[in-house]
Design a protein around this nucleic acid. Structure first.
Lengths: 228, 228
DNA sequence: CTGGATCCCTCACGATACTG
DNA sequence: CAGTATCGTGAGGGATCCAG
């Protein structure tokens, strides 16, 4: 048994031994979007030391979560991708992401938003029920980051970059989490200018039906900030 | 921003900053069963150093996941319990647990099974759909650990200890994960004696309809053991 | 330029002892 | 019972260096 094992015959404990190390689930998050090279992962996780990234990738490969694959010639480069088993982490990553976004608050000065994290966030918050029989597309811009979402009869496809033909363009900043929890009313958000729209305004309400999270629970008296 | 922050404006990253430290989610797991005293938590997590447990509880309290409460006289003792926000981690804990149990394998020599982890495992794998209109009760014994489950029209209640009136008593060992993934056939499990029943045999198949996890994916060539 | 490996420093974790 | 104090170890953080 490993030195740092939890020593419990328990699915959660075993999962944490495989993907509970620091940075591991963020690597899985980025790989859920698609295969990536070492440098791509570095770009999406700028604060990870390269030795830690290399170590995590080896551990995840050993745990059959990640597969290291050498692309055929002439590319010849190395990509990391999730195994089928690793892709099975998607529900857990989505659930943790939905929980975390409830108390995300405003971005700190050094916090950055990546395209992949936004793609995963949209997929995590998509509710297929109200999307049945619906066909609509959105372009979402948050700072430099632009993604688009195609909804087609209960199915969602999220891609990076612009989509000129989108039914509605949404441009916003850090207000998005408060919008998604229902903490911020869409009408007042537009009125105050924290959300700017390009297209029919009523499609924003539709957007919030399709993408949502449980509302932030009432404060229980404990301090929830991150200062230590 | 904290020194060890991930520096990402992302729900998953924020969640990992709150409950991603070592032992944190195992503490949450035990508190999902009910409020506990410091010593109760120690008993359920025998390998956690007491200072780490104390540190985690303070961090979780600060993150509004856990609430420290002094019981009214004459008890006067201290209990830790999940806040509403902390209880919102249940779907994430269940999803991670379901993923981890797929590759749990056999228990190591030092691995132990606790009552609370078994209770959470059953709740995590319960499927309410086949339970509609159904009323049945089970007693489950794995080594020293005994719990019981009451299913009543889509609702599940799991409690610790024996239930003499249970419709079926199931006594097994480490074979349970393989049974739940479908990797091990219930008939052969009974025939080989790794599962012993007390009651109508066909209720075991019913049990596996009510409690199940996605089957373990086919091996992809990577080694999945834990030796380092 | 990609894909890492190596070094050093710090701090979190782990084990144990001890206290109100 | 409910933690705190102390100390050793090893993992993470950051910078740099190197091979293909």
């Amino acid at each position: 048994m490993s030195k740092r094992a939890y020593g419990q015959f328990c699915g959660l404990a075993h999962a944490l031994e495989l993907v509970g190390e620091r940075w591991a689930l963020l690597i899985v998050r980025d790989l859920l979007v698609g295969p990536k090279r070492f440098t791509d992962l570095r770009r999406g996780l700028p604060r990870i030391p390269t030795n830690v990234l290399a170590t995590r990738l080896k551990e995840l490969e050993h745990a059959a979560v990640v597969r290291r694959r050498v692309l055929p010639r002439p590319a010849g480069s190395v990509v990391y991708e999730l195994t089928e088993h690793g892709a099975g982490l998607e529900p857990a990553v989505f659930a943790l992401g939905r929980w975390g976004i409830q108390t995300l608050g405003e971005p700190g000065p050094g916090d950055l938003l990546t395209v992949d994290s936004l793609i995963i966030a949209l997929r995590a918050m998509f509710d297929p029920e109200p999307a049945r029989g619906l066909r609509v597309s959105y372009q979402l811009r948050m700072g430099e980051v632009v993604v688009h979402a195609l909804i087609d009869d209960g199915a969602l496809e999220v891609g990076r970059g612009e989509l000129a033909t989108a039914d509605l363009g949404i441009e916003t900043s850090a207000a998005m989490p408060r919008l998604l929890t229902g903490e911020l009313d869409p009408a007042t958000a537009v009125a105050e200018g924290v959300v700017r729209l390009t297209g029919p305004t009523d499609l924003l309400a539709r957007f919030l039906e399709l993408f949502h999270i449980p509302p932030t629970p009432k404060d229980t008296g404990a301090t929830a900030d991150l200062s230590r």
